[in-house]
Design a protein around this nucleic acid. Sequence first.
DNA 1: GCTCGTGGTGGTAACGTTTCCACTTGAGTG
DNA 2: CACTCAAGTGGAAACGTTACCACCACGAGC
Lengths: 365, 365
Amino acid sequence: MGQSRKVKAGAGPAGRGPGARTVTMKDVAAAAGVGLGTVSRVFSGGGPVANATRERIEATAARLNYRPSALGRDLRSMRTRNVGLMVADIANTFYGEFTEGVLAAAASADRHVIIGATGEDPGVERDYIELMLGQRPEGIIAFPTGQNADLWREAQDAGIRVVFADRPVESIPAPVVLSDNAGSAYALTEYLLALGHSRIGYLGGPANVYTAIERESGFRRAHADAGIQVAEHLVLRSRFTRGLAHAGAARLLSADPPPTAVFASNNVLGEEVLGALSVAGLRVPRDVSFVMFDDVPWAKLTRPDVTVIAQPTWAMGREALRLVIEQGTAGPAPRVVLNSKLIVRGSAAPPAAPAGQFTPQRKDE
Amino acid sequence: MGQSRKVKAGAGPAGRGPGARTVTMKDVAAAAGVGLGTVSRVFSGGGPVANATRERIEATAARLNYRPSALGRDLRSMRTRNVGLMVADIANTFYGEFTEGVLAAAASADRHVIIGATGEDPGVERDYIELMLGQRPEGIIAFPTGQNADLWREAQDAGIRVVFADRPVESIPAPVVLSDNAGSAYALTEYLLALGHSRIGYLGGPANVYTAIERESGFRRAHADAGIQVAEHLVLRSRFTRGLAHAGAARLLSADPPPTAVFASNNVLGEEVLGALSVAGLRVPRDVSFVMFDDVPWAKLTRPDVTVIAQPTWAMGREALRLVIEQGTAGPAPRVVLNSKLIVRGSAAPPAAPAGQFTPQRKDE
DNA sequence: GCTCGTGGTGGTAACGTTTCCACTTGAGTG
DNA sequence: CACTCAAGTGGAAACGTTACCACCACGAGC
């Protein structure tokens, strides 16, 4: 990595403070005794430039400490190298890893990432889209709330390449990068059923959220295929926020009859289930088995460690950026589906009491 | 949140695809029958505009679906509303929460955040700074690697407000937002000593990293003040990366004599210690106590839950952005120090064997 | 010896905005 | 009734870059 180009403080003509006028292309042209166009050709790789001239210009530019201004370039060329990224919650490692994938791909493609966190709030999302529209980015990657279809359409009309992550927006024909929610939920459920569970508690997401719908459908299909009825009184839906999730988890565990296994449909819900299990004094997996959608760092650290579905989060981010850059001109918007992986750890075991034939304990009241 | 301004698809003159010419200020001016300057005054809040004119212009702009271009504005005014943010690893919740704080403050201040992840690699950091320099951001918030002082200076000379987070760079006079590393490490160590521990294992960071130095100094000062000697054979330093940390943690636990408590100096090291404890079959806190610098979501979920130092990460991010925006003109660069909190949970207890008077078990060999 | 293409170059006109200056109007002041 | 002042307005000139056209040599082809 070039550690050349050392700058003596206070040495060059670029003095101190805000008074220091920025070096422009015109300065370089004048100092090198060439025309403006020639300098531009050197830095933007446009037309032909004689080798001698190119070297002289590059030397002059380095001496003057010239740096091309993205402002001028972007305005003139009417396109930027910025990509907007809108996640729900950047403190959640799921989005963090996704972002990491985006950043990695962006760095190799020489793109810059402008990030925003919506908190799943359509109003905030709206503000961010409007902000982005003003910035004229090359594209926007978003975990959409599902609202604001008008603005998404406007963005597309403005030539901004929109790519959705994790869930599509029905009315917007944009590329989407997904993980196989239904299939993974199916696999995880199938695993529990195979262990002998037949009363599986399910803590799902809101009924209007794409991933929640997909996962629940996988959960149900696995039951159907195994010829086992879903224990409907153990299927709960909660917003993906801690407070509500906590209440839901507690209610699930105290249901009657209680679940022999619990399936948390994302990492936040999983944390709350684990907390509720602890409060209830239930031991995993002896008293109840526990599995979760989403792998997280701590899933390996708890005792027992947690059996999970690991989504290819990083790769999803990388693919999303790729879709922005390579977005084709015609044809239907591509839908990239990446496969998740079932990671079996120690939090699930066969149920203590034989499934079926059990004597529900009646609570009075 | 305004859900007005609905856009009929395919209705307006803005047609389909990239052919749709963007609406510019000139268009609005012409359509409203006013001069260019007047439209500008309406949108940039410059000079006086008659109420009637303002309303007419706003109506026209809404009808044409006009959106001011940040490109033109930034170029002409020679200042952007972009702030660069350079973290080490966005998938780490520590940086994630910090970023969340930055984003929250940025949203209220109408700033946009361009994010980059350095992975603590000075070369990558260098590339990012150069990238940012081209973007002419208003400021840069960074967790600096400590290298690239020349570029940081150049950024400052270009009028970019540089703010460092978590650690200063010696030779660069920039504002810094820190947490009280030494003081918090002192408090956490003092807590262990008060429980009766006298052989505390310490897994620290690299000897050239600011936070690592500060935390170790707090650890040592607490010993000194309590009149207890640091168990030097139990003080290890490791890079903040998983592989090396894991080896370090294992070595620490198998030292002779072994520690009665372990102090992990950040969350990554803490995870590895926990993993090593599990492998070694040691029970917390019965066999060995465990405390950690950094609070993380999983610290509440393990059994027992982990006693930690919680840094005000979110607030640090918010302050960093504030420092960018309000960066004063003169005077020494401010150094904002935010206090951390000791959160006592269940992972530390008095040592099993009385401290002092113990019989070291000799291994042959 | 003329044309023709082509590598190399300089200059001018944009891109969409803000900044600045000049101008008009109408009300207030002597 | 001049005279000043401020509110309100229009228009030109920037900002730093790229796109484009025109031009000059010079060698190749006839």
